[in-house]
Nucleic acid binder design. Structure first.
Lengths: 153, 153
DNA sequence: ATTAATTAAGTTGTGCGCAACTTAGTTGCG
DNA sequence: CGCAACTAAGTTGCGCACAACTTAATTAAT
């Protein structure tokens, strides 16, 4: 029972594999828009609320500035967003959709629909799976912040 | 109903976030063994069956040679595995645990136990979640191989 | 007002992950 | 045999992820 667990039995590996599989499904569709999956996630956030700060985007995606900053740089180079230094707090940079970035919204929504269909699950099943994963992430997140320092060697 | 979906409502994002969260939980523990999560996965495969080929490992992890080859190179440099050209088919390279690599098995198993506990889910819940994710991955995998060429533009 | 602590964003370095390509060994078919 | 098709592994290039660090602006605390 407590022998070496098989890789195929691991829920963690299943998450890792599922995550890459779904990104792989998005890839050919996003390629045609000139986007990667993380870039697409940023645009989804901005379609919902434009003008977010870099750190807000990082919090939503659970990514740090070392990932988000260069990603936004590429999104700006591609012409989908603009970055503006805020005058009331010069440390802050807000990110704004360009016309070109805003115009992708319709196509982007279609893509999420297609992916949902390809999952082979019903709407309710997807919701249930999502909620389970979010519980898992929350629980794991607590553990991480709890054991900042004390991984007793 | 068909408005722009919120990021927080997306099952795909939940997978992406959960995958990174669990790898983040593994990280400090694996760090102490001098391993990354993908490297740990390779060792799990070899603990189960030693002497696998590079392509077998790639198939199991669903990773291509562009990812696996340099990963194995680093595992070899770290002294956990050895690679051997097979004499019956000179194209094949088999990967073998060193004593040092084999010795990590006990510690490795402990780590998976700890992560299971940190998930905040029961054994049965984890099994159910894993099965759901594997269904999802399988279904998405079919879609990908099906639409190799015909993403009608 | 001065300065220490904090915060926001960005940079650097390493290791994936994957597409596209290369190299070399094997097989198939005339 | 000769050679095209295939296969296994590896290389290159780019975009994440993340740790560790830097820079610059703000706040707090005297």
């Amino acid at each position: 029972m407590d022998a070496t667990p098989r890789l195929s039995e691991q829920a963690c590996f299943a998450m890792y594999a599922a995550s890459r599989a779904v990104i792989g499904l998005y890839r050919p569709m996003l390629d045609r828009l000139g986007l990667t999956y993380p870039q697409f996630l940023v645009l989804m956030l901005l379609w919902e609320t434009d003008g977010r700060t870099v750190s807000d985007i990082g919090n939503e995606l659970q990514l740090d500035s070392g990932t988000v900053s260069p990603l936004l740089k590429r999104l700006e180079a591609a012409g989908f967003v603009e970055r503006r230094r805020e005058s009331d707090d010069e440390r802050r940079v807000t990110v704004h959709l360009t016309d070109s970035g805003a115009a992708l919204e319709t196509r982007g929504c279609e893509i999420t629909q297609v992916v949902g269909t390809a999952s082979g699950m019903s709407y309710d099943e997807l919701i249930a799976l999502r909620d389970r994963l979010n519980e898992f992430t929350a629980s794991v997140g607590d553990r991480e912040s709890a054991s900042e320092n004390n991984t007793s060697e």
